[in-house]
C-alpha cells in the first residue's frame, strides 16, 4: 500500500514537472507570451555575449565579432547599397501610368514608416509585409507586380528603409486578437523547428550556434535580424530582400523551400521583427 502511495506521489511529481516544463516555452495559443519571449531572447544573448550592447544587435554578427567588424566598417564607409537607395528613390517618385504613385498608397507618403512593418491586417486576416504592400500598390494602380527577391522591389524597399533609419521598431500583436497571436506563434514555431535532410532549425545556427564558425563563416545572432534588410550581400553581389534570404536559408537545411512572401515566411518575419522591438531600423545594410 505504501509502495502504491509512493508511486502515486512519484508519478504526480513526474507529471507536474512535465506540466511546468511544457507550459514555459509557450507552444500553444493559450500559453504563448510574445513579450516574455522577447525578454527571454534578449536575456539569452546578454548572457552569451556579455560585452555586446543591446542596441548594437542591429549590426548582426558585427555586434559580437570584433575582427569582422573592422572589415565591415571599411565596407560601410563606401556603402555598396548607395546606388540602390538612389535608384529606389527614383522608382519611388516615378508616377504610374495613371498619374498616381507609391506615396499615395502609404501613410505619411511612405516616408519614415519602415518600423511599422510587418503588421497584422485584421481585415485581411494575415500578416502584411512592406514588399507585399509595394506590389499591392502597383496592382491597384494597374501596374504589374515586381518580382520578390531582388531588383526594383528591393531598391524601393531600401529607399523606404533609408527614410526610416533610427526609427524604433514597434510591431504590435493586438490584444485579444487570436489571429494575430496565431500568426506570431506560427512564425515562432517555424524558427525553432528542425527541418530538411540536414535537420536544421533557424535557431540551430542563429541562437545556439551564433558567433561560432561554420567553416570560415560566423552565424549571426537572431536578435536584430530583420532590422537591416534589404541587404547588399557580398555573396550575392547585389541587393536582395529578407524573403530571398529566408528562401536561401530554408534551402540550406536541404528542404524544398517555401516561396517568397508565403504566409509562413510572413509569419516568420512577424515573429522575428517583434523580437527586435525596441531596436532601430538601419536598413539597407551590407553583409558578407
Amino acid at each position: 500500500m505504501k509502495i502504491i502511495k509512493n508511486i502515486t506521489i512519484g508519478l504526480s511529481l513526474l507529471m507536474s514537472t512535465q506540466l511546468v516544463f511544457s507550459a514555459q516555452p509557450g507552444t500553444t495559443l493559450a500559453s504563448v507570451n510574445p513579450e516574455a519571449d522577447r525578454m527571454a531572447l534578449q536575456q539569452f544573448f546578454k548572457k552569451r555575449f556579455p560585452d555586446a550592447e543591446l542596441a548594437d544587435y542591429v549590426n548582426g554578427i558585427y555586434a559580437v565579432d570584433a575582427d569582422s567588424r573592422t572589415q565591415w566598417e571599411d565596407l560601410e564607409s563606401f556603402p555598396p547599397y548607395e546606388f540602390d537607395v538612389e535608384e529606389g528613390e527614383r522608382l519611388f517618385k516615378t508616377a504610374f501610368a495613371n498619374g498616381k504613385g507609391y506615396a499615395d498608397c502609404f501613410e505619411k507618403g511612405g516616408i519614415g514608416i519602415r518600423q511599422n512593418f510587418p503588421y497584422w491586417d485584421k481585415k485581411a486576416g494575415t500578416v502584411k509585409t512592406l514588399e507585399q504592400e509595394i506590389n499591392e500598390c502597383r496592382e491597384s494602380n494597374g501596374e504589374k507586380p515586381l518580382k520578390w527577391g531582388k531588383g526594383p522591389i528591393a531598391q524601393i524597399s531600401a529607399y523606404m528603409a533609408w527614410t526610416s533609419r533610427d526609427n524604433v521598431f514597434d510591431i504590435k500583436i493586438p490584444e485579444g486578437d487570436e489571429g494575430a497571436l496565431a500568426a506570431y506563434l506560427d512564425g515562432k514555431k517555424f524558427f525553432y523547428t528542425k527541418r530538411g535532410q540536414l535537420n536544421l532549425s533557424c535557431a540551430n545556427c542563429h541562437v545556439q550556434g551564433s558567433n561560432v564558425r561554420i567553416r570560415a563563416d560566423l552565424a549571426s545572432p537572431s536578435l536584430g535580424h530583420t532590422s537591416h534588410f534589404p541587404v547588399f550581400r557580398s555573396k550575392w553581389g547585389e541587393l536582395g530582400t529578407l524573403h530571398r534570404r529566408y528562401k536561401g536559408c530554408h534551402k540550406d537545411s536541404r528542404s524544398q523551400p517555401l516561396g517568397m512572401q508565403h504566409e509562413t515566411f510572413r509569419n516568420l518575419e512577424y515573429f522575428q521583427t517583434y523580437m527586435s522591438n525596441g531596436l532601430v531600423v538601419n536598413g539597407p545594410g551590407s553583409r558578407k
Binding site: 509557450g26 507552444t27 539569452f44 515562432k188 525553432y192 541562437v207
Partner: peptide, 11 residues
C-alpha cells in the same frame, strides 16, 4: 517536431 520544436526556445 510537432511535439518537440520548443526544446531550443530560450527560457
Amino acid at each position: 517536431a510537432e511535439n518537440n520544436w520548443h526544446l531550443s526556445v530560450p527560457q
